[in-house]
Simulated scan of single mutants.
Amino acid sequence: MSDYTSIVGWCEPIGGIRYRSRRDLKWAVGHPRSGFVFVVPAGRVFDVSIPRALRWIFDPHDPRFLKAAALHDEMLMTGWARVTAAAEFHEALRADGVGRWARLAMFGAVALWRFQ
């Protein structure tokens, strides 16, 4: 099991759909032995931006979505391309056991949101 999948107690809710990381969250970009580890630092605030109309399908507080959301937000904040961040978001969802159709829907949403 990786540092990513085994981490527990790494974030806390701070209101609404916002959370704060309590510990560093480490993600191996590309594949687990790629040698490149992206870190969401402790103390980082992130949100799980699921439109209200879709929250009956995708609960923004589902723990399977939290790490992927933190990873995606941090990648965007540090200048990663939207589609690249979306691809890593998709892989993080897979690592946390999110099903294929849910991953596809969420990947499409984050990859195309504000598409320019």
Rank of each mutant, 00 (worst) to 15 (best):
R18W: 12
R114K: 10
R55S: 01
V98E: 04
A109G: 10
E88Q: 15
L76W: 09
Y4C: 05
L54M: 11
A105F: 11
R100Y: 13
G15A: 05
P41F: 00
A81N: 12
T84S: 15
K67I: 06
G16D: 00
K26Y: 03
G15D: 09
A69C: 15
A53M: 02
W56H: 12
I50T: 05
A105W: 04
L54K: 05
G15W: 02
M77G: 13
G43I: 04
H90Y: 15
G43Q: 01
Y19W: 15
V29R: 08
S21P: 07
Q116W: 10
G99L: 10
R18L: 03
P13Q: 02
P13F: 01
V110W: 01
Y19G: 02
F65M: 13
I50D: 02
L104A: 13
P41C: 06
F65Y: 15
T84L: 14
G30H: 03
H31K: 12
A68M: 08
L76I: 15
E12A: 14
C11W: 07
A28I: 01
L66S: 04
V29A: 11
F115L: 10
W10A: 08
W10L: 02
K67L: 11
G15I: 02
W101E: 06
R22T: 14
R20Y: 03
V98F: 04
A28F: 11
F36A: 03
H61M: 06
G108K: 01
P51F: 00
A42P: 08
S34A: 07
H90K: 14
H61G: 05
V37L: 12
M77K: 15
V39S: 10
A111S: 06
R55F: 06
L66Q: 14
A42W: 08
Y4M: 03
G35D: 00
C11K: 05
L112R: 00
T78W: 07
V39T: 15
V37K: 05
F38H: 08
A92W: 11
R23M: 13
R23C: 09
G79I: 09
I7A: 14
V40T: 08
W10P: 09
E91G: 03
F36R: 11
G9L: 02
C11F: 06
R55L: 04
I50L: 12
V40H: 10
A105D: 00
M106Q: 07
R33G: 11
G99N: 13
K67C: 10
I14K: 07
R23L: 15
V45R: 11
K67T: 00
W56M: 02
M75S: 11
G99P: 07
M75F: 08
F36W: 14
S21M: 11
P41I: 00
I57R: 14
F46G: 04
A92D: 04
L71Q: 06
S21W: 00
R22E: 04
L76G: 07
V83T: 13
Q116C: 05
V39N: 09
H72Q: 14
P51M: 01
A105C: 04
E74L: 09
S21L: 12
D62K: 03
H61K: 12
P60L: 05
W56S: 12
G97V: 08
L76V: 13
W27M: 02
F58S: 03
D47I: 00
D24G: 04
H90N: 15
F46K: 03
A70R: 11
L54E: 05
E88V: 13
L93S: 05
F115Q: 02
D47P: 01
D59G: 03
V110K: 02
